[in-house]
Amino acid sequence: MALDRETVQRIAFLARIRVDEERLDQIAGELDTIIDWVEQLSEVDTEGVEPMTSVADMLAPQRVDQVTDGDCRDKILANAPDAFDGFFTVPKVVE
């Protein structure tokens, strides 16, 4: 099986999703099924094909450099689970 427990553990950490030990095998199984299934794409000849990142065939629009936003701290903090004194907060980070 290409997608094993260790891989699930690694990507689960990258995605910051806690996965309990006992669920690792089951999830590895599910993900492996899906990956096996998508691997049929290798049959497709894509020699010299440019990857398509967007269907919108237009150029990136650009805005003029003006201050038109911000200065709305209350709105920004309104939904914060643990805002304090104008700041967002997180568990203490030691660097």
């Binding site: 805005r63 450099d65 003006q66 201050v67 038109t68 936003d69 911000g70 200065d71 709305c72 701290r73 709105k75 920004i76 903090l77 104008g86 700041f87 967002f88």
Partner: peptide, 26 residues
């Protein structure tokens, strides 16, 4: 620049915390 790379909020230095934050920046 006056405003941020992808939003219209100000880049001035030393403002009160979170006062130069748009919905996009947050």
């Amino acid at each position: 620049s006056k405003s941020k790379l992808f939003s219209g909020s100000s880049t001035d230095f030393g403002a009160k915390p979170n006062t130069q934050v748009s919905l996009v920046d947050a």
